[in-house]
Design a protein around this nucleic acid. Sequence first.
DNA 1: ATGTGC
Length: 488
Amino acid sequence: MITQRVDENIYEVPADMKLIKVEDKILNFNMKVPARIYANEYLMERISKDKSIDQITNVACLPGIRKHVIAMSDAHQGYGFCIGGVAATDIEGGAISPGGVGYDINCGVRLLKTGLEYSEVSAQLPELTEGLFHNIPSGLGSKGKLHITPTDLNQVLDEGINWAIEKGFGYDKDREFCEDHGFTQGADSSLVSKRAKDRGIRQLGSLGSGNHFIEIQRVEEIFDDRAAKIMGIQKNQVTMMIHTGSRAMGHQVCTDSLQEIDHLMHRNGIIAPDRELGYAISGTKEADRYLAQMRAAANFAWTNRHIIMHWARETFQSVLGLEPSQMELIYGLAHNILKQEEHDLGNGMRGMVNVHRKGATRAFPPGHPDVPDKYKEIGQPVLIPGSMGTSSYLCVGQEKAMDLSFASTAHGGGREMSRSKAKRQFWGKTIKQELGKQGIVVRAASLKILAEEAPLAYKNIDEVVGVSHNLGIIKKVAKLIPIGVTKG
DNA sequence: ATGTGC
């Protein structure tokens, strides 16, 4: 396939026929729209090395696909559909693909401010980091400290953070600063399998493993004074970021749905460009079934981050005497989710589409109805965490995102190296020492995870964010650097 | 990402 550079930060594979070997036959698939990669040369070189571009051209062949399929600047290959991928399909007759959402349904990020300066916190950093690690269960297979009933779990799945706020976690005010108010409508807990519930019930309020983290940060640089002022952020202020998802609950929902959809396609004699890219047709009961389960898992993830946030606030209170209500939520968002939104579809058309964002962050521009009133004039806050030792960015959505990316942007550094390769290349203990030299306190469940998550295993976050900023999809507001990190 | 298993 030909990849053309059509702009400084835009590469494109024009719509074309795709010959794909499926089992023993060569089949002809038709890309209905172009596939685009938003990248500069540095990132394009890396994105081209794995199956990402092949995966987005597969997605471009799906039924009802609209306008263009996008690989964001942090893209790397994933199950059937690259991470850092965005695709929109017709609400009637378009494809709905669990692979386009991912296993960690509603994985996402929250950012809180403390109102404290770095100098007021630095001496207690080891104690704070240790406190977070102890108060928030972390690591593979970690279980929450909560003991909830199956009825509670169903409420979590159906109502999201409303359940948690009612139980005394966090504040009413937190709702306003969460995407979807921390409650994804249209969930149906009765459709979620017993297995998913059995795995999930003990994990509410746990961090998990992989790239999930809680990070204490210092505001290193402000790029946009007006937006920073509205968000209440200033240089040297201490912030805290939480990154986790729906744990085994979302994983099991994805596994269950992929299996159901695989069987459905087989029964109907439909072949996808990739076995991993199974889909149901939007508007059918099979698609609705996936959506209702996906939304239930999304509500689990909203609530998981909410409870973790509550315990993190308590940790700051016990170590620094900081009043929990002083740690205000700046914003909480999802970056693995499918949403039905209205978009410009090109050629003067406009309509509702299924926007798959897999490792991609929603980035609504100023004035959009779904941007909280407080941020209406600056755009939706966008949180893009880097890897363990590198910066994270606080940004805001911009108008160009509506035309270029179905109001989406990158979600993080994006791996450059597989976990196994990182483990061969790095040694956890050395990574910890190197971070220590940079003034970063690290507390992790294992040294293995530090090797897998080594900063050099990820793409350069400054480049990743720079591409979206230069395209006008988002605007940089502040750069945050880690000072205390806990990892599962 | 994930009790890293059909």
